[in-house]
């Protein structure tokens, strides 16, 4: 795969946990300023791929490239300035004894970026959180409010790449629409690149022109959002996921 024109390249990625091979040779490439979707069976390795890209797992083989450069096993500080991740499980990614204010200030401090006093209220606003949550602790928020804090935290340092693991699964559809519109706006304004994992095909198709479908640690099909909408699928897993989701769309 040619890495020169792609911002992110994942090439034959294999990840094992003991005897379990969670990811078995996954490859894909994402051009700068575009969004790449990953859908598929629960347990198929989607989060594991994202976590490896984010540098949270050093036990992998294959190649991962950012901007044509091979990513080292141990990422540099500069990497985290460029790439941020929103985790599937926002509770786990927020420190229980840290207020939301501290959680949002932390990435700024870690990267030596000033101006937290202006950045934090703006970040809360962007994800439609009331300013009142700023000095609360994670357990004092609802599930969807915590998920929005996680998104705000990833955005606050203005990264180039966002790895989004089920970013809207705990949000009501009105907040989901706001977050998806925000992601589209940011992409247009700052040319951001996204990789988004979601179980909601309509959400993925809305944001991502290209989608990889995973099952059992492999990408079983890569197709355009258009093809998915039109039902031009080749793998039975994709067809089944699509059928179940369009079935529910019928009133």
């Amino acid at each position: 795969m040619d890495g020169r024109f792609q911002l992110i390249v994942v090439d034959n990625l294999v990840i094992r946990f003991g005897r379990v091979e969670a990811v078995s040779g996954v490859s894909f490439a994402v051009a700068r300023g575009t969004a790449w979707g990953i859908v598929g069976e629960s347990g198929s390795g989607k989060s594991t791929v994202l976590r490896a890209l984010a540098g949270l797992n050093e036990n992998w083989s294959g190649r991962m490239l950012l901007d044509g450069e091979e990513l080292p096993r141990r990422r540099t500080r500069a990497f985290f300035r460029r790439v941020q991740m929103v985790f599937q499980d926002p509770y786990g990614s927020l420190h229980p004894r840290q207020t939301i204010d501290r959680a949002l200030a932390e990435p700024l401090v870690a990267q030596g970026i000033g101006g937290a006093d202006a950045a934090i209220p703006r970040a809360l606003d962007e994800v439609a959180l009331p300013q009142a949550v700023r000095f609360r602790y994670p357990h004092q928020l609802s599930g969807g409010q915590r998920q929005r804090v996680a998104i705000a935290r990833a955005l606050i340092t203005s990264p180039e790449v966002l790895l989004l693991d089920e970013p809207t699964s705990a949000l009501d559809v009105s907040v989901q629409a706001e977050v998806l519109n925000l992601l589209s706006d940011l992409q247009r304004e700052r040319n951001l690149t996204y990789i988004m994992v979601s179980h909601n095909l309509a959400v993925v198709a809305h944001l991502c022109p290209m989608i990889a479908v995973m099952q059992g640690g492999r990408v079983v099909e890569t197709l355009s959002a258009e093809a998915l909408r039109a039902g031009r699928t080749t793998h039975p897993h994709t067809a089944e996921l699509r059928a179940l989701s369009t079935e529910l769309e019928e009133p």
Binding site: D172, S174, A177, L180, A205, A225, R229
Partner: peptide
């Protein structure tokens, strides 16, 4: 009613989602 209008769907693509 507003919530229902915010739903993205596979069958009807929208450039921008309706918000509430």
């Amino acid at each position: 009613r507003g919530l229902l209008a915010c739903l993205p769907t596979l069958s009807h693509p929208q450039a921008r989602l309706t918000t509430l």
